[in-house]
Design a protein around this nucleic acid. Structure first.
Length: 243
DNA sequence: CAAATTTGACCAGG
DNA sequence: CCTGGTCAAATTTG
């Protein structure tokens, strides 16, 4: 079976660490900060991307993320990237996202979403890109990753977790994850998850999609999305940026 | 010029 | 003590 070194989804939200920057102004806030932030929706998404044919699973849920750190995780071959909503200070959106490449399958990205979004996904007041098909020039930024293991001749490029993927759901809005009510989400991901050309790959049997919820109000779901299916499921193009 | 990204340092929890 | 996580400053890109 697959060895699960780390505690899968036992990640905890970070407490109020680091406030040393504040001057000696002891505001009325006691140093006694809540140990655990409480009610922090956390779900994990495992997406598999393939760069062989230039197909890449998009990880963009329609929100703008800004990388705020990257740390190497013990036991992980690749560093984990930390992203936070671009509007953290603008709209107080405390939504965070963690991207980590699986040690075993460099093509599988483990994205952990934390917190809810308070900002608008792509619903700009008057943005809504009417046309603009798509750009054929997605990733290409940090490239210094060591050669990945020859996994069936898959020469994974050098896209780190910093690559601007774009992954959008058919119409899944993570609104009330706290209620763990979105199993129906995976419904659209049942078929076409089997690699036809991968030849004899039957290890994905358990990769379909399972739900996992902890008592600590921390739910996580893992599903594998097929690149081919994704590419087709892309009516909306990202790049919903505005100034 | 501004925004985003990068890298290092620092802190808190286990 | 070590690991994981975040922020800050510096740098890069648009």
């Amino acid at each position: 079976m697959a060895t699960q070194p780390e505690s899968s989804v036992s990640i905890e939200e970070s407490p109020r660490s680091q406030d040393y920057n504040q001057p000696f102004d002891n505001q009325q806030e006691d140093k006694v900060v809540s140990k655990k932030r409480k009610a922090m929706p956390t779900w994990q998404n495992q997406i598999r991307i393939s760069t062989e044919n230039g197909l890449e699973g998009n990880t963009d849920d329609g929100y703008s993320w800004r990388k705020y750190g990257q740390k190497d995780i013990l036991g992980s071959k690749f560093p984990r990237s930390y992203y936070r909503c671009t509007y953290r200070y603008i709209h107080h959106c405390l939504a965070r996202k963690q991207v980590q490449r699986t040690n075993e399958d460099p093509t599988v990205f483990e994205i952990t979403y934390k917190g809810q979004h308070s900002c608008n996904p792509t619903a700009s007041p008057s943005a809504a890109p009417p046309h603009s098909p798509e750009k054929h020039d997605p990733i290409e930024q940090t490239n210094h990753q060591l050669a990945l293991p020859p996994k069936s001749g898959v020469s994974t490029s050098d896209f780190d977790a910093t690559v601007p993927y774009s992954f959008s759901f058919p119409s899944a809005s993570f609104g009330s994850i706290e209620n763990y009510q979105q199993p129906h989400l995976l419904q659209g991901y049942s078929p076409s998850f089997i690699s036809p050309t991968t030849s004899g790959s039957n290890n994905l049997t358990e990769c379909s999609s399972y739900f996992q919820h902890h008592d600590d109000s921390n739910s996580s779901l893992t599903f594998i999305t097929d690149p081919q299916d994704l590419t087709q499921n892309f009516p909306f193009n990202n790049s919903g940026y505005f100034m």
